[in-house]
């Protein structure tokens, strides 16, 4: 059930990237793709009844190891989120340059203008 819902979110992102004609909508589609993939990685690392991977001071190490969730996908996703912000900023810069050159955000009109 949860895997299917995550796949639907991914599919909506692909639809936004391929079908939309406005540059801002394409950027939003990329952001939705980013969210879906990050969420999928975190869902893989979850265990039922797990605790967060942070040791407190009066806690047994053996008990902690048997109960905590997987820390490796969290580390990968932490890197991926910051890269997502940088990529979004680069997209916005490219979109602003295209708007300065052609005066519109619509890519089908830009195609006609180039002729």
């Amino acid at each position: 059930m949860i895997w299917i819902l995550t796949f639907i979110l991914f599919a909506i992102g692909v639809y936004g990237v391929v079908c939309k004609r406005n540059l801002v909508k394409i950027i939003l589609g990329f952001m939705i793709l980013d969210y879906a993939i990050n969420l999928f990685l975190i869902l893989i690392g979850y265990r039922k009844g797990g605790i967060a991977p942070i040791i407190s001071q009066n806690e047994n190490l053996q008990e902690f190891v048997s109960k905590a969730v997987d820390p490796l996908p969290q580390a990968l996703v932490l890197t991926s989120i910051v890269i997502g912000l940088a990529i979004t900023a680069l997209f916005v810069a490219i979109a602003i340059r295209i708007y300065e050159k052609f005066g519109t955000f619509d890519i089908s009109k830009i195609k006609e203008l180039k002729g």
Binding site: V82, L85, A86, A89, V92, A93, I96
Partner: peptide, 12 residues
């Protein structure tokens, strides 16, 4: 990270 993100916003 602080310098980079602030610089992008400033240029934008």
């Amino acid at each position: 990270v602080m310098a980079g993100i602030f610089f992008v916003f400033f240029i934008l």
